[in-house]
């Protein structure tokens, strides 16, 4: 049935085909303009940053140094976007819904497997978060892993019981992030300035990159709590 409908729709409007051709043509027309390796700057800003990042930030993972520190304001903004989405979903989905009862019984296997998987999940998430400045990974990824853990629990029939605590943590970490960033203005010369001295002699160890690991932990918790609260909002429903 659906395939039949789909076939029919394909020929309903020749305009769509026309549009497709026009924009396909446009795409090929602009293709030369958006490809190429030469930039007017001899070295793109990103490339310059990558070169200087390890020495300046003390973080071997230059990408992390750029993301969390050099362009930390963007990251703060992105964390805010996540927070914003959680708040918006909370507002829209949370209206008049307060029942957290599952609609159907959880899967037996999932319910049993959770205890087995949980510690591993947690440990990996934690590791990824705090080693963000050393190895690939970081707060975003770690936070998502933590949130994945929460999703598993929800699928296993558990519910977020201490919603207030979750929101408190969410707010606390977010504000700590912002406060650390702000206090940099006075204590380290710039917004997001390095409050903790960089130990160049300990390069490559856990406590070498100044505030980057601290910020990444905040980001990790923040991301985790946001995604958990988004899950929580999705699984709420109106009380019967």
């Amino acid at each position: 049935m659906s395939s039949k409908l789909g076939k029919k729709r394909l020929f309903i409007s020749p305009m769509h085909l026309l549009w497709a051709i026009v924009f396909g043509g446009l795409f090929f027309a602009i293709l030369p303009a958006i490809s190429g390796h030469e930039s007017i700057r001899s070295e793109r800003v990103g490339e310059s940053l990558l070169v200087q990042a390890p020495a300046q930030s003390g973080a071997p993972n230059a990408v992390t140094a750029v993301v969390v520190w050099f362009r930390g304001l963007d990251t703060l903004g992105e964390v805010s976007v996540l927070f914003l989405v959680a708040a918006a979903l909370g507002m829209i989905l949370g209206r008049g819904k307060n029942s957290t009862e599952p609609e159907s019984k959880p899967n037996e296997i999932v319910a049993h497997a959770k205890t087995l998987v949980l510690p591993h999940f947690m440990l990996t998430g934690l590791y990824i978060t705090i080693h963000g400045h050393l190895t690939p990974g970081g707060g975003f990824q770690g936070g998502v892993m933590a949130a994945g853990m929460a999703l598993l629990l929800i699928l296993a029939g558990d519910r977020v019981k201490h919603l207030h605590a979750l929101h408190f943590l969410e707010g606390l970490v977010g504000s700590l992030y912002a406060l650390v960033a702000i206090s940099g203005i006075w204590f380290a010369g710039s917004f997001l300035g390095n409050l903790i001295p960089i130990k160049t002699e300990a390069f490559g160890t856990l406590f070498s990159a100044g505030i980057i690991p601290v910020l990444y932990i905040f980001i990790g918790i923040k991301v985790g709590t946001e995604i958990i609260s988004i899950y929580d909002n999705f699984q709420r429903r109106e009380e019967a």
């Binding site: 304001l73 805010s80 927070f83 408190f168 969410e170 707010g171 977010g174 912002a178 702000i182 203005i185």
Partner: peptide
Amino acid sequence: MHPVLFIAVPLLAAFLAGPL
């Protein structure tokens, strides 16, 4: 006066919206 506070203070207030 640091212009960044125009951004950071509302953000901070947003994070602390519950208690504030």
